[in-house]
């Protein structure tokens, strides 16, 4: 890569080749990625970010494709980050979300990037958050993030998006599922996709019941919408509701407080990461090995050992 100034200039102009290269730097944890983010940071914060999450096969990618087509019809631009799982064994991945939106590739107002999780477990990749900043600085009006197909507890998206849409489908379980903690709690909007299937109205009803029993103020209850992403049915209504949610939050100050909460999380997250990296460089593997032997033989305990290690780290840090 040439110099950072040149690079950030091209990104601000929306040069797709440079945007793509920047995201690669972020994914590879290249040192220059941090410099780039620092130089672009003052130009970030304008894009509205929408997170789309839900179980595998719910129709997230198809829904994202239709949503983006609708946003484009309103003359707004979109950057997309589509996350798929990396293999925990080989690190390889099949990133196949683009298949659901082939016509968007030729649209100059759309940028699509597929991303492997590379070991992250919260539904996003480690690189997602910073990649959003790149798309934001390039001037896209909306950044849409599609998580991996999730189960019940992958809630990273709430730390990254201004609005989170949880996509469900009929037939995944009974009403008890709607009572559980985790992804049910992070939705700003619920979508029951595949609305043409039997049981869709029932699933929507169960979700509404769950919402009524929760502690939402009446005016803040997340809407439950029915969509059929394959035919595009319900997509304009979904976008209207997303916009209304963001608009209301902007007025009430919740938009700002949410972003501040996300920033607090981000600082702590980066700090955690750096501390972990630091610990790795300071304590060698043989030390761990000898301690494992001692713990195994019940000569000491994991807590005593970690206390000891912590003191060593503090002394080394001086």
């Amino acid at each position: 890569m040439n110099n950072i100034q040149e690079f950030s200039k091209e990104i601000k102009k929306g040069n797709k080749r440079f945007i793509a290269k920047a995201i690669t730097l972020i994914e590879n944890e290249d040192k220059q990625a941090t410099e780039l983010i620092n130089s672009l940071y003052e130009f970030c914060g304008n894009a509205k970010t929408i997170g789309i999450t839900g179980p595998p096969g719910a129709g997230k990618s198809t829904l994202v494709g239709e949503l983006v087509k609708h946003i484009r019809s309103l003359d707004k631009t979109c950057g997309l980050i589509l996350v798929d799982p990396s293999s925990p064994f080989t690190g390889g991945a099949i990133l196949g979300d683009r298949i659901r939106m082939p016509e968007l590739t030729n649209d100059s107002g759309v940028f699509i990037r597929s991303m492997g999780t590379r070991g992250s477990l919260g539904g996003l990749a480690k690189a997602t958050r910073d990649s959003v900043k790149i798309l934001d600085a390039s001037g896209y009006d909306y950044v849409i993030i599609e998580t991996v197909g999730i189960g019940q507890a992958e809630t990273d998206i709430v730390q990254t998006a201004d609005a989170v849409v949880v996509v469900s489908v009929p037939g995944l379980g009974d009403h008890i599922q709607t009572l559980k903690a985790g992804i049910m709690e992070i939705a700003d909007l619920f979508v029951v996709n595949k609305a043409d299937k039997d049981g869709a109205p029932k699933t929507a009803r169960e979700l509404r019941l769950m919402i009524e029993m929760s502690n939402y103020a009446v005016e803040e209850r997340p809407p439950v919408l029915l969509t059929d992403a394959l035919s595009g049915t319900g997509i304009p209504e979904l976008f209207t509701k997303i916009e209304a949610f963001i608009e209301n939050n902007l007025k009430s100050g919740k938009f700002e407080s949410r972003r501040k909460e996300q920033l607090l999380f981000e600082i702590q997250d980066i700090l955690d990461y750096n501390v972990k990296k630091y610990i790795k460089t300071k304590i060698d593997k043989d030390f761990y090995k000898s301690k494992v032997e001692e713990i195994f033989n019940r000569e000491t305990t994991p807590y005593v050992v970690t206390e000891e290690l912590f003191n060593i780290l503090l002394n080394k840090g001086e």
């Binding site: 080989t90 690190g91 390889g92 991945a93 099949i94 990133l95 196949g96 683009r98 082939p102 030729n106």
Partner: peptide
């Protein structure tokens, strides 16, 4: 096979134009 060799494979599906 490339996935199992540790690579990230973006599969774009059928009937793509060279431009796409």
């Amino acid at each position: 096979a490339l996935r199992d060799a540790g690579m990230e494979v973006i599969y774009t599906g059928l009937r793509q134009t060279p431009e796409q």
